[in-house]
Every structure is written in C-alpha cells, then in structure tokens.
C-alpha cells in the first residue's frame, strides 16, 4: 500500500527547474534512500512531500491526502509527517524536553504533563534521558539530532522524512544517529531518507533512488542498485562515495 505517491512532479525556482517530472512511491513500512550529487534536488524533493516547497506540476499524495489540493489542511498534513533536518533546527530558547513537548501540546492538543511524560519516554529511547533539562546549545551535534528525531516521533507520524541527517555531524557522532534510524526502520516506520551513508542504505533500505540534475535517474531495489546501477552517472557517483 502506498504511503507517499509522487506523480510526475516538476518544480521551478523562478526560471530554474529544480525538479523534472519526478515519479516514485514509498509504500507503508518501506525505507527509501535518496542519493545524488549536491544540487541535484534531493532536499527539494522531500520538502515537496510535506508542502514546505510548492510544486508547479504533478501531484503528491500522502496517505490518501492530496498535498497540493488548495483545500488540504497543510498544518494537519505536516503534523502527520515527521521531518528531520541537516542542521537539526531545534528551538534554541527551549529546553530539550520543551522542544519535544511543544508540538504535542500546541498541535495535537495534549495536556502539558501528558506530553512531558511522552517526551521523557522518547528521550529515553534515543538515549538522552539525562539531558532533558538542557538547552540545545549545550548538546553535541549528535545529541541534538537525536533530540530532533525524538521531537518528530512525538507527533506519532505516519512516515518520516530525513534530509541528510548526519552530514553536519563530526564523524564520531554519525553512528549514534544512524543507530536510532536503523531501529526506527526495523520497527517498520515508513522512511524517506536523503543520505550518502551507503552503509545505512545497505542495512535497512528497501529501495534506493539516485537523482541527478533534478531528475530521478535510478529507482531500484537495493540489491539491484548496489549490484549494477544502470546509469553511468550513478556508477560514477557510487564509486566516488564508496571509496573515500
């Protein structure tokens, strides 16, 4: 069953076409990794899924909701789709606990103490119970990103989008974040993950999408992608990131 359907979408920034008739689909429980060179449109593609970026052509459907229908309640839709950013984007003026609780209270209407209980459970799950009272600026990058994942999970999302969640991290912190993501994947979360961590892709991805210049060039089962990517660009790209 399709959770995210992306049907022939195109997007322009002014004259510049950032996405060219992209079509793909993420099924419920599926983990799809999106890779490709910088500027190829990966971030733009996943930001279209929760309408952070509008599209000019095509259609996106998330869990049966037509994202680009002007009648769609976008805040409602976005609350169903968790998102994790490259630069964490925690709210610096709030404690870690409040970061995780805020959306539950203000969007889902949970009671503050109920939300705080839930937040504590999630912080425990990402291994940060002892940091609940701190502010984001007092945590390492890896810890901040784990808080960001907990914050997204707190909304009980039906699927999760990740935009290069480990590429702003020092190498020694990458694994603590990937471990949390692997666990999520194994629990059956539907995930669309922009990343160049091919180890993660090999471990938990079902499919790999390769983008170049705004177009989806490859969209294969993991085994096929790593076995024999068809396009020359994808092969070049893979040999570059696998050998450094």
């Amino acid at each position: 069953m399709a959770m995210i359907e992306i049907k022939s979408i195109s997007k322009w920034f002014g004259q510049f076409q950032a996405l060219k008739e992209c079509t793909t689909q993420v099924d419920k429980g599926e983990v799809v990794v999106v890779c490709g060179p910088s500027g190829s449109g990966k971030s733009t593609l996943i930001k279209c899924v929760n309408a952070l970026e509008p599209i000019q052509q095509g259609e996106i459907i998330v869990d049966g909701i037509r994202v680009n229908d002007p009648k769609t309640d976008l805040p409602k839709l976005r609350s169903l789709v968790g998102m994790v950013f490259q630069h964490f984007e925690l709210f610096p003026h709030m404690t870690v606990l409040d970061n995780v609780s805020l959306g539950q209270v203000k969007v889902l209407g949970r009671k503050p103490d109920e939300a705080a209980e839930n937040s504590k459970k999630l912080l425990h799950r990402v291994g940060l119970s002892h940091h609940a009272h701190k502010h984001p600026g007092q945590l390492s990058g890896g810890q901040q990103q784990r808080v960001a994942i907990a914050r997204a999970l707190a909304m009980n999302p039906i699927c999760m989008l990740f935009d290069e969640p480990t590429s702003a991290l020092d190498p020694e912190m990458i694994n603590e974040v990937l471990d949390v993501m692997v666990e999520l994947a194994q629990e059956g979360m539907t995930m669309m993950v922009v990343t160049h961590e091919m180890g993660f892709a090999k471990k938990v991805a079902h499919r790999v999408i390769f983008m170049d210049a705004g177009a989806i060039v490859e969209d294969d089962k993991k085994e096929e992608f790593f076995g024999s990517p068809r396009s020359e660009r994808a092969q070049q790209f893979l040999s570059k990131i696998l050998h450094h």
Binding site: P75, K106, V107
Partner: peptide, 14 residues
Amino acid sequence: PRGQSMAGLAMGFT
C-alpha cells in the same frame, strides 16, 4: 536560519 521556520511548519504549526 531559514530552517527554523521550516522546522516549525514541518511540525504542523500554522
């Protein structure tokens, strides 16, 4: 950072 408002919106805030 522009990502701050994106993070707010992505969470379901108006």
